Simulated scan of single mutants.
Amino acid sequence: MKLKHRIAYYIFGLTLGFFLVAFIFNKRGQDFCYLPNCRVLKDFKTKGLTISKEAQAKINEKWVTMEDIKNSLENGNVDFSKSNKLNPGGGKIYVIETITAKNEPVIFEIINHTDRAILKDIKKQ
């Protein structure tokens, strides 16, 4: 058998196997979340988010909503150059940059503890 036929069979088998595995794992509710941004946001979602008094005051001003916060945990971008710094009260501070439903850029500061996550502050950019 020629080399190019072997390579073609290999690529065909590899592609078929990939789709078979993707089809099986897709039914089980698995998702691809191995990148750092995705892992941090998934960690916040699984722990649940507690809102501090400072953040609640900003939410009460009505320029940011709870829906914006939920969307930021799905589609936000973690700024790792400003994140993963120790908080004086314990935990680490993470900075998430996102856009509200009104297309206004905002920054969420979240303190990540081992057992909980606290929305510390919300800032306009």
Results as ranks from 00 to 15, higher is better:
72 S>G: 11
32 F>Q: 08
56 Q>K: 08
73 L>I: 04
56 Q>D: 15
98 T>K: 14
77 N>G: 00
67 E>P: 06
62 K>R: 15
69 I>A: 02
47 K>M: 07
95 V>T: 13
91 G>T: 15
77 N>I: 14
67 E>K: 11
56 Q>W: 08
46 T>G: 04
54 E>V: 04
38 C>E: 09
49 L>T: 03
99 I>F: 14
68 D>H: 07
83 S>N: 08
52 S>F: 09
97 E>G: 00
89 G>K: 14
78 V>F: 12
73 L>S: 04
85 K>R: 14
58 K>W: 06
94 Y>F: 15
91 G>F: 15
41 L>T: 05
34 Y>N: 12
45 K>S: 10
81 S>L: 10
52 S>V: 04
96 I>M: 05
41 L>V: 05
92 K>T: 07
48 G>F: 11
34 Y>L: 12
52 S>Q: 04
51 I>Y: 05
70 K>Q: 02
71 N>C: 04
90 G>S: 06
70 K>L: 03
81 S>E: 14
95 V>E: 02
55 A>N: 04
72 S>D: 02
75 N>V: 01
79 D>V: 14
75 N>L: 11
74 E>I: 09
80 F>Y: 09
89 G>P: 01
93 I>L: 12
56 Q>M: 13
61 E>Y: 02
97 E>H: 11
52 S>E: 07
71 N>L: 08
93 I>R: 13
58 K>I: 12
45 K>N: 06
75 N>W: 06
39 R>C: 12
61 E>Q: 10
68 D>C: 05
32 F>N: 12
45 K>C: 02
90 G>H: 06
54 E>H: 11
68 D>L: 02
55 A>H: 06
71 N>M: 07
94 Y>D: 08
51 I>K: 03
51 I>H: 04
70 K>T: 03
91 G>V: 15
41 L>F: 13
38 C>N: 06
100 T>E: 10
80 F>C: 04
82 K>G: 01
93 I>S: 06
48 G>N: 03
51 I>W: 08
86 L>A: 12
68 D>P: 14
44 F>H: 10
49 L>S: 00
39 R>A: 15
93 I>E: 03
33 C>S: 14
48 G>A: 01
80 F>A: 07
84 N>H: 09
45 K>R: 14
38 C>M: 00
76 G>Y: 09
59 I>F: 07
92 K>W: 15
39 R>P: 12
38 C>Y: 00
82 K>L: 13
77 N>A: 05
81 S>T: 11
94 Y>M: 07
89 G>H: 12
100 T>H: 15
97 E>L: 08
87 N>Y: 15
48 G>D: 02
62 K>N: 13
44 F>L: 09
32 F>G: 08
88 P>D: 09
92 K>V: 09
85 K>C: 05
60 N>C: 01
43 D>K: 03
84 N>F: 13
69 I>T: 03
82 K>Y: 10
34 Y>C: 11
96 I>E: 05
33 C>H: 01
52 S>A: 05
40 V>F: 11
87 N>R: 12
85 K>N: 08
85 K>L: 13
70 K>Y: 10
73 L>M: 13
86 L>E: 12
78 V>G: 07
57 A>C: 03
59 I>V: 06
68 D>F: 08
48 G>E: 06
43 D>P: 02
77 N>Y: 14
51 I>E: 04
84 N>W: 10
66 M>S: 02
69 I>H: 07
38 C>P: 06
35 L>R: 00
60 N>I: 03
43 D>L: 03
84 N>E: 11
91 G>M: 14
87 N>G: 05
56 Q>A: 11
57 A>K: 13
